[in-house]
Design a binder for these strands. Sequence first.
DNA 1: ACCTGAACACCGTTCAAGT
DNA 2: ACCTGAACACCGTTCAAGT
Lengths: 260, 260
Amino acid sequence: MPTGPRAAKPQASYWLSDRAGAKRRREPEAGSGNGAGLDLDRVVRATIRLLDAEGLARFSMRRLAAALGVTPMSVYWYVDNKDDLLEIALDEINGEIPVPPDDATTTEPEDWRGQLRALATGYRTMLVAHPWASRLMGEYLNAGPRATAFATAAYRVIRRAGLPEDRAPGALAAVHQFAYGFGTVEGRWAERCRTAGTDEDELLREVFDATRDKPELGGLTGLIARHTTGRRDELRERDFAFALDVLIAGIDALRDSADG
Amino acid sequence: MPTGPRAAKPQASYWLSDRAGAKRRREPEAGSGNGAGLDLDRVVRATIRLLDAEGLARFSMRRLAAALGVTPMSVYWYVDNKDDLLEIALDEINGEIPVPPDDATTTEPEDWRGQLRALATGYRTMLVAHPWASRLMGEYLNAGPRATAFATAAYRVIRRAGLPEDRAPGALAAVHQFAYGFGTVEGRWAERCRTAGTDEDELLREVFDATRDKPELGGLTGLIARHTTGRRDELRERDFAFALDVLIAGIDALRDSADG
DNA sequence: ACCTGAACACCGTTCAAGT
DNA sequence: ACCTGAACACCGTTCAAGT
């Protein structure tokens, strides 16, 4: 086995390791009023800010340190390595997704449709706001407190749909993975436009021009043309909403079917 | 704007650039029997082999060159940069997905369900076989010949479902993104087990142990336990199959509904 | 307890030469 | 036409010191 740069620590996840929570967020010391010192929270917030602004590819421990006005190695006091830091930042933004309240009695039992839509929409919104997140979600285990809170809420909602217990995971996967994929391509597309220096229209036109004279592409050219004209955002919303319609109608159909 | 390592070339995609196909695959020269020289095909195949064997994180132009028994800069004769090479390799493996024949008359018109299942399954299989692919699919435009052939076939199939034309993209997105997400987490999980040195059972047990004594996780613990016991692969197949059931039932329901 | 400096083993890529 | 060598501007991280 070759010994690459990060080959030594094959830990599955920061959240499973004993160092999770070991380096506690520093209590605001009553005596000292200086806000100059670092802090895990400060480091994580700066990380998220940098990732949002410049993307994952440009993010580095050295740039983060520079942004914090500090030497590269200072950050390592608060975090063991880059992977841990990214895993923490990723979990943090999972907290941005609104989840329905736990108390089942306050909500109509049949409200699972609306709640499922809301969860999928919130997830998508988060992914679009932080395109780096969809990259990292694949990379790590997502076992942090915010991510598991979201997962728990999603499972709670799908259970209300009335499917047999062993069917719920499959149905939830359908919705979850769809929202993940949709939000991912949406966020990446926006990111690509930004980093390519061109705007969405120009980029779409480039794609369209490249495909227009290829008969083997079948209906694809029409598909692309659909987006070069008219209101793109509206089409995206319609596609997203209709896909959710499909998923919910599918769940309804299979709940009522005999083999359920 | 900061000038990072690859800040100079904001090209949207190799396939849209004029250099696509400019560096032609060398014709097997009739006179010379030496197989020592490089070749775009050889470079791409070695790239895929390395990515499969060691993963994207460990792949580098320098390691590729070493694997080819050549100086780092030699590769750059065949390819402009790392991004282009990865984009080509990614398109290449899209060719592994079996697609139904174009000729509509040879297939039953109602066969779209089976074809859709087959496409989703093939897509998932490809992603699991090459976990690096799902990472790159997000990164690039997927406008190469193999990727567009797959997209064309998928669109052809969804059109046969009988949905109104402007609903087809949303429905296809639901299926496509689901298969992408499912195959992604499946492939990454296997990859994680490999690089963590542990096997699937041990890793799952770690996750389970970390969550067992947390009451706020609701039904999640049961969800994980479901996978720690019994036949995992079978559960995965069932979940995948049922999710496809949901999607197809949903399409059926919305095709027949009044607002279609 | 918190931060620094120098160093190591890596990157992708440019540029000027070699054959 | 094809490949090399040296160099540049980056990485993540270790380790030994500083305060």
